[in-house]
Nucleic acid binder design. Structure first.
Length: 977
RNA sequence: GCCCGGAUGGUGGAAUUGGUAGACACGCAGGACUUAAAAUCCUGUGACUUCACGGUCGUGCGGGUUCAAGUCCCGCUCCGGGCACCA
């Protein structure tokens, strides 16, 4: 353990609480985990114990953690939860005979790293390097069995060369919907040259049609514009989430409730020319792929929701007196006879064309009103009905009726066609709008047969609807779409909520987009031999005031000698993390993103562990990039992560002090004086290391704690702290009626974070209890997927357990106890039961119950005073994945060569588990009344007979006739009277 | 509003998938050792009731299926997470 610069340690006594200092001494006397850890870390590194080869006869298994952002705060105890779980599994699989790839790296690009660097006024590369070193130290001290020779960093040019390369592939491919695969853009050009775009079924935003002759006549610029609309990485003017405070564009998933996820700054929609990835091309495959992978239902639900597939129809409505027609998308074409008005998004391109002279003013005013509203305002006032009449009318395709056209912000420009046919009888929002604007309502669905159905359920009988009247809804939908298609006014259609992903960031610390523009502004990608395109040095990392990327400051870099200019936007953080798992298979390859042989051997990740906060962004992009590379034949799998586990969050204790200001004086009021009504108080987070008994109901700041708090927050040097026992000010406590200085703080459970001053550093826990204890305690806390609060109370239980385990090998004076005596049948039974349970529990990732199984075993063996080598040696191997240090030490002491982590996992033998008797619970009328032992081989009949003779049964039966006698062999007996 | 989870002692949690509810651990209480404390060890610990043997109740609430329900079904309540004017 190299902990030279570990800042957290000096205050560790405060954090853990002083009384435990004494325990620490006692611990070290029994076994010196610090020494043991140091010794084996060095040994493992020297011997390359955890290095893995791409050449092996053994079956492969790939265990991966979501790699961290190396933030400046280092790890807190919440971070390693997933790492420990995956490490246990990786170690287990290795012992089970698999060739296990278990690497680690750093997601070093992106906003957090850059913000941190800017705040410290240093180069992001330097701060990143610094942070990585700290992370590495912390990760190693936990005893995680990573193959560090495979470490990757997304900010390393050797790595991002290939991120850029994949981007150029995306740029040079389009999505062929017929073949359901990505194809080279050159093929598309050939097809255009032969037939125009008439036969091309592709994912595109291009709506026009052209022939081969047209194509030949198009200018270079026109051709380029069209091709751009087919590329999988493309440049387009789009409404983007612009965040003024961060000075950058954000992806949809980085915006929550109109605020930036990072920093909570307001975000507005702005039209800008940006790079996008055509993720929508893969929408269907991203959706159907979910059925092939082992992820939690909730995670799949989030992704399905994000993709948001719906089926319906696209219908064109003729416009009265105009050439143009109005396309709409609906999931309820069966309600078309109930249409009484149409609504367009205010930004819809037809608004200007449609609006009549008389309505010009009103419409313009409304459009202006909407444009001036922030996303936040729109979302906050969802129920408010606003809109304007355009003066124009559409023609109903079946009745010929004239339908008024309105604009309203409840119709979104980006979803469907940005226009709807409004059916007020069967849609709440349409209904609200119709009522507000006094538009008639026609009932078209009779739901009287479905009393429980909601407005949106696709059930009922169609009424008032000409040729579909009388049909049930599903039948009516099919029929009306047929008619629409026959009439040539529309077609069956599928729609997605998912949008193409914005891929431009006006940020310094990211991969430069490897694109150059010629004098006509036409984009071309850099060839592989010009990659990596390295980040230039710039004078200032912040974005420019007009929203251009900081890279634009590097004039020499931007302007090429031949007059071309470089793209100055950088890629988002999700770029490097979209494919990093592939790089680990062949991390030093300079000729390819990963060698064919390596990636074909390791393939996709068998077990992926990480936080659910990446449910959408990272996991969606990763799946998209994987499918794309699969289409191009670079890899032979279509999903990146076969099984995924989201570890829960470890929550911390939040300590709060209440402040009231009066006449410019700060009064802190002890929580027991504040009561439940905290209105009128400001809340301040108190660093938990100042608080006595933090996390407990009565947690308080002692006189010493108050002094520390004031010293830490000098602006409160003169503040008055009021508590029941007296008053504290300027370092002096004035008691009242002989009271004590106890300033009570309010405790809550919540996220652990630097800003709440409640992080617990694993270094401190490891220093006091050892890495093995830390690992096992995190596992013992509860099911891996559950969130749970951290408290150090329970850690003593694990610490005791490890010392008892050690005590099976050594007595209190350090004498070796292990003998080669023949083990007793009971001891063998304990061992084999434990092995059986461990196998069962590890396979289902139930690590908490597995630890409890070890506890039971150690308790039992201790009672038996079992020191038999043939019991303890397998037990050491069994526990090795959980407690790698102590088991490695004991493995050597048991006289074994090599590492326990390269041995084999024990297996159990049923023969030791056979019981001669089985305890049967005897129930009478379903209530347990007794437990009786019967021979294990007793037949059903024997048991039946014996049960009836039992005194207890006689007593309960009490002469009444026995209706039924149920005997489940090996389980239980139930007598029904 | 919609979707996905969840609710078990004072606490974290367990229950072989319909078969002894509360494993394991924390906490608490009592005891041993100690001048004392810490550490360690032992005993007890769901609630109610009984001198005791024992009995009654008990897995968020209300019903149901079953010889048997924490587990399955129906209807709710509350908590956590996600989405949200998505036509």
């Amino acid at each position: 353990m190299q902990k030279g610069n570990c800042l957290g340690r000096t205050i560790f006594c405060l954090k853990i609480g002083a009384p435990k200092e004494l325990r620490k001494k006692n611990l070290i006397m029994e076994f010196n985990f610090t020494e043991i850890e140091k010794k084996w870390l060095a040994n493992w590194e020297k011997n390359g114990t955890y290095q893995v080869s791409n050449d092996s006869d053994r079956p492969k298994y790939y265990v991966l953690d979501m790699f961290p952002y190396p933030s400046g705060s280092g790890l807190h105890v919440g971070h390693p939860l997933g790492y420990i779980a995956s490490d246990i599994f990786a170690r287990y699989k290795r012992l089970k005979g698999y060739n296990v790839l278990h690497p680690m790296g750093y997601d070093a690009f992106g906003l957090p790293a850059e913000e941190y660097a800017i705040s410290r006024g240093i180069h992001p590369a330097d701060s990143t390097q610094e942070n990585i070193e700290r992370y590495r130290q912390q990760l190693e001290s936990i005893g995680l069995s990573f193959d560090w020779s495979r470490e990757v960093r997304t900010s390393d040019p050797k790595y991002y060369k290939w991120t850029q390369w994949i981007f150029t592939l995306l740029f040079n491919h389009y999505y062929d919907k017929d073949a359901e695969t990505a194809r080279p853009i050159f093929d598309l050009i050939t097809r255009f040259e032969q037939n125009g775009n008439l036969l091309v079924q592709a994912s595109t935003t291009y709506e026009g049609e052209f022939t081969a002759t047209d194509w030949a006549r198009f200018s270079r610029k026109e051709k380029d514009d069209i091709l751009m609309q087919y590329r999988l990485a493309f440049r387009s003017v789009g409404y983007v989430n612009w965040c003024e405070a961060l000075g950058t564009v954000l992806a949809n998933d980085q915006v929550k409730n109109g605020l930036s996820e990072r920093g909570q700054h307001p975000v507005e929609l702005r039209p800008m020319t940006q790079w996008f990835l055509r993720t929508t091309a893969y929408a269907d495959r991203l959706l159907s792929g979910l059925d092939t992978i082992d992820w939690s239902e909730s995670l799949k639900a989030i992704q399905r929701n994000w993709i948001g597939r719906s089926e319906g129809a696209l219908v064109r409505f003729e416009l009265k007196g105009l050439e143009e027609s109005l396309p709409i998308y609906t999931t309820r074409p069966d309600t078309i006879f109930g249409v009484t008005f149409m609504v367009l998004a205010p930004e819809h391109e037809l608004v200007e064309v449609l609006t009549t002279a008389e309505q010009q003013e009103e419409v313009a005013a409304y459009v202006k009103y909407v444009a001036g509203r922030s996303e936040r305002e729109r979302q906050a006032e969802v129920k408010e009905v606003t809109g304007a009449f355009t003066g124009a009318y559409a023609i109903h395709p079946f009745t010929g009726a004239e339908i008024p056209i309105y604009i309203s912000e409840y119709v979104l420009k980006d979803y469907g066609t940005g226009a709807i046919m409004a059916v007020p009888s069967d849609d709440e929002r349409d209904q609200a709008f119709a009522k507000a604007f006094d538009i008639p309502i026609i009932d078209v669905i009779d739901k009287s047969d479905y009393p429980d159905a909601g407005l949106h359920d696709k059930v009922g009988r169609v009424i008032n609807s000409d040729f579909i009247t009388g049909m049930e809804v599903p039948e009516a939908i099919a029929e009306i779409i047929n008619r629409i298609e026959e009439k040539g006014i529309g077609k069956r259609g599928v729609n997605y909520k998912m949008r193409d992903a914005g891929f431009s960031r006006q940020r310094y610390w990211g991969e430069p987009i490897p694109i150059v523009y010629d004098e006509d502004g036409l984009a071309s990608s850099l060839p592989l031999d010009e990659l990596p395109l390295e980040l230039p040095e710039v004078s200032e990392f912040r974005p420019t005031a007009d929203g251009r990327s900081p890279l634009s400051r590097a004039e020499d870099w931007v302007h090429l000698p031949d007059g071309r200019v470089r793209e100055t936007d950088t890629m988002p953080g999700t770029a490097g993390s979209a494919w990093y798992f592939m790089r680990y298979t062949d991390p030093h390859n300079e000729e390819a993103f990963a060698g064919k042989k390596a990636i074909d051997y390791w393939q996709n990740v068998d077990l992926y562990v990480g936080g659910s906060e990446h449910a959408v962004a990272h996991l969606m992009y990763s799946r998209f990039w994987t499918k794309f590379l699969f289409d191009l034949g670079y890899i032979n799998f279509e999903e990146p992560f076969k099984k995924l586990i989201n570890q829960g969050m470890i929550q911390g204790v939040i300590e709060i002090a209440y402040l009231k200001q009066k006449d410019g004086q700060n009064y802190f009021i002890s929580a027991d004086l504040v009561g439940d009504d905290v209105r009128g108080y400001s809340e301040f987070f108190v660093p938990i290391e100042f608080v006595t008994d933090y996390g407990k109901e009565h947690s308080y700041l002692s006189e010493e704690g108050l002094r520390k708090y004031v010293e830490w927050k000098p602006e409160f040097a003169n503040a008055i702290f009021e508590m029941p026992g007296g008053v504290f000010q300027k370092g002096v406590f004035t008691p009242k009626d002989g009271g004590e200085c106890r300033f009570v703080t309010h405790s809550e459970t919540g996220k652990m974070s630097k800003s709440r001053y409640n992080t617990i550093n694993p270094d401190d826990i490891i220093a006091e209890y050892g890495a093995d204890c830390f690992r096992m305690y995190e596992m013992f806390l509860g099911p891996i997927e559950q969130s749970k609060p951290w408290n150090t109370n329970g850690i003593d239980g694990i610490s005791k357990f490890l010392r008892r385990f050690w005590a099976l090998f050594y007595d209190a004076d350090g004498r070796w106890l292990v003998t080669d005596e023949k083990p007793s049948a009971e001891a063998l039974k304990v061992l084999h039961q434990t092995i059986k349970k461990a196998l069962y529990d590890i396979e289902r990732f139930s690590f908490n119950t597995c630890v409890s199984g070890f506890m039971v075993a150690v308790n039992d063996l201790r009672k038996m005073k079992c020191h038999s080598q043939s019991i303890l040696e397998p037990l050491v191997r069994l526990m090795a994945p959980f407690a790698p240090f102590i088991t490695e030490e004991l493995w050597g002491k048991l006289g074994n060569e090599g590492s326990v982590h390269q041995s084999t996992y024990p297996d159990f033998d049923e023969k030791y588990l056979v019981e001669s008797t089985v305890d049967y619970p005897i129930s009478i009328n379903g209530k347990k009344r007794a437990v009786v032992a019967f021979p294990a081989d007793a037949s059903k009949e024997d048991i039946e007979k014996a049960v009836l003779d039992l005194e207890i049964v006689q007593k309960w039966v009490d002469g009444k006739p026995i209706k039924r006698l149920i005997v489940v062999p090996g389980r239980m007996v139930n007598v029904v009277v």
